[in-house]
Design a protein around this nucleic acid. Structure first.
Lengths: 124, 124
DNA sequence: ATTATTGTACTAAGTGGTTAATACAATAAT
DNA sequence: ATTATTGTATTAACCACTTAGTACAATAAT
C-alpha cells in the first residue's frame, strides 16, 4: 500500500481516509489480515502512535477488528462495506457539487465541465 | 458574507478559500472595497491576526491590493479572476475524479452517479 | 492640526497533532 | 516453559495554529 500524506491536515485523519478507501475499493478484502501497527507505521513513515490512533478510530467505526495478539483484521461484514461505499460516494459527490456551487457553477454547468474533462483525459 | 469554519483545517486556510470563492463567483466584484481587517475578523468571529494572515496571503497571490490606510480592494484584473475561476474549477473536478477513483469508481461510473444525484436533487 | 481609521507588528499563552522513547500485557510460535 | 510478536499505554518534547492584548505608522476625514 502506498501512502500519500501531506501537512495540510492531521496525518492520522489522512491515514483513516486512505485505509478506508483501500477497504471500500476492495484492495483490502473482507477478513484480510493487516500488517502490524509497527509495520504499517514504518511503511507510511509515520510514528507508531499516529498509526495506532488511526487504527483505533477505524476499529471504533467497526471497519477493523482486533484479536489481541494475533493482529488486526478487516471486517467480514460485506454488507457494511457496501453500504459505506455508497455513502462515501454520495458524500463526495454532494461535497463536490457544493464546492462548485461556491465557485459560481450550477449543477448543469458542473456536469458539462465534468464531461469535458473526462473526454479530454480519455485522449491521453 | 457568511462564514463556515470548522477545526478540521487551519482557520486561515479556510478564510482564504472562502474569500477567494466570493471573488471567483462574483459576489465580490473587481475593484470592490473590503471591510477592514477588524470588521472582517469580527464578522467571522476570528482573531484579527488570523484574518490578517489570510488577507496577506491573498494579497501575495495578487487577488487583493492594499492602499495603506484607505483599506483593501479586490483586484480590477478581470482576466486574472476569470483565469483563476477556470483553474479552480478544473482542479476541483480532477480532485473529485481522483477521490472517486480511490473509492473504486471509474470516471464513467462517477458520471452516472453524479447525474443520478443531480436528478434526485432537482425533485426537491 | 487633530482625530479616527487603516494596515501592521510583536509578545505571551493555550491547544492539538506529532514524534520519540519506553514499558507493559497477552498470546501465538517454538 | 521460553521467546517473539502483537496491541496498548504513558510521558516528555516540539511545532503550527490560534487567541489575546497591545502598540505603532500612515493617512483620510474633520
Amino acid at each position: 500500500m502506498k501512502w500519500e500524506l501531506n501537512s495540510d491536515r492531521p496525518v492520522y485523519v489522512q491515514l483513516i481516509e486512505q485505509i478506508q478507501a483501500e477497504i471500500i475499493s476492495g484492495n483490502y478484502k473482507p477478513g484480510d489480515k493487516l500488517p502490524s501497527v509497527r509495520d504499517l507505521a514504518a511503511e507510511a513513515t509515520v510514528n507508531p502512535n499516529t498509526m495506532q490512533k488511526a487504527l483505533s478510530e477505524l476499529e471504533r467505526i467497526g471497519l477493523l477488528l482486533t484479536n489481541r495478539t494475533s493482529g488486526r483484521y478487516i471486517t467480514s461484514d460485506e454488507q457494511m462495506i457496501k453500504k459505506l461505499k455508497a455513502e462515501s460516494a454520495k458524500n463526495q459527490i454532494l461535497e463536490f457539487i457544493d464546492k462548485m456551487h461556491q465557485l459560481g457553477f450550477e449543477p448543469e454547468e458542473t456536469l458539462n465541465l465534468f464531461i469535458e474533462i473526462v473526454k479530454s483525459h480519455k485522449q491521453d
